[in-house]
Amino acid sequence: MKLHSLDRSSLNNSSFTSKINEYPYFLKVWHYHPELELVVVLKSEGTCFIGDSIDKFESGDIVLIGKNLPHMWLNDDNYFQENSNLSAKAIAIHFRENYLGNGFFETPEMIHLLELFNRAQFGIKFLKINKRLIQEIQTMLELEGFDKSIKFLMILNQLSKHKDYKLLASHGFINSLKIAENKTLDKVQAYIFKNFNKTITLQEVAQMAHMNTSAFSRFFKRVNRKTFSRYLAEIRIGYACKLLIENKYNIGTVSYESGYPNISNFNRQFKLIMNCTPSTYVKEHIK
Score class of each variant (00 low, 15 high):
138 Q>L: 11
61 D>C: 03
52 D>S: 07
283 K>R: 13
187 K>T: 15
94 H>C: 10
197 N>A: 09
57 F>H: 01
106 E>Q: 11
74 L>T: 05
190 A>L: 07
130 N>Y: 02
148 K>N: 09
156 L>S: 03
175 N>Y: 06
62 I>T: 03
84 S>I: 01
213 T>W: 06
95 F>D: 08
228 F>S: 02
77 D>F: 11
19 K>I: 07
99 Y>I: 09
243 L>E: 13
155 I>W: 01
145 G>S: 11
265 N>K: 07
216 F>R: 02
219 F>K: 12
90 A>R: 05
26 F>Y: 14
227 T>N: 06
129 I>F: 02
63 V>H: 00
250 N>H: 10
104 F>Y: 15
102 N>L: 12
98 N>I: 05
276 C>M: 15
255 S>Y: 03
239 Y>D: 05
58 E>L: 00
165 Y>Q: 02
160 S>R: 00
105 F>V: 02
105 F>Y: 11
126 F>C: 04
271 K>Q: 10
141 L>Y: 10
98 N>S: 14
16 F>S: 08
135 Q>E: 14
136 E>Y: 01
50 I>C: 09
27 L>S: 14
69 L>T: 08
269 Q>F: 00
204 E>M: 08
21 N>A: 00
86 L>E: 13
250 N>C: 06
236 R>S: 02
218 R>N: 14
275 N>S: 10
85 N>Y: 02
278 P>Y: 02
28 K>E: 15
280 T>E: 15
108 P>A: 07
134 I>F: 01
128 K>I: 00
138 Q>V: 01
153 L>D: 13
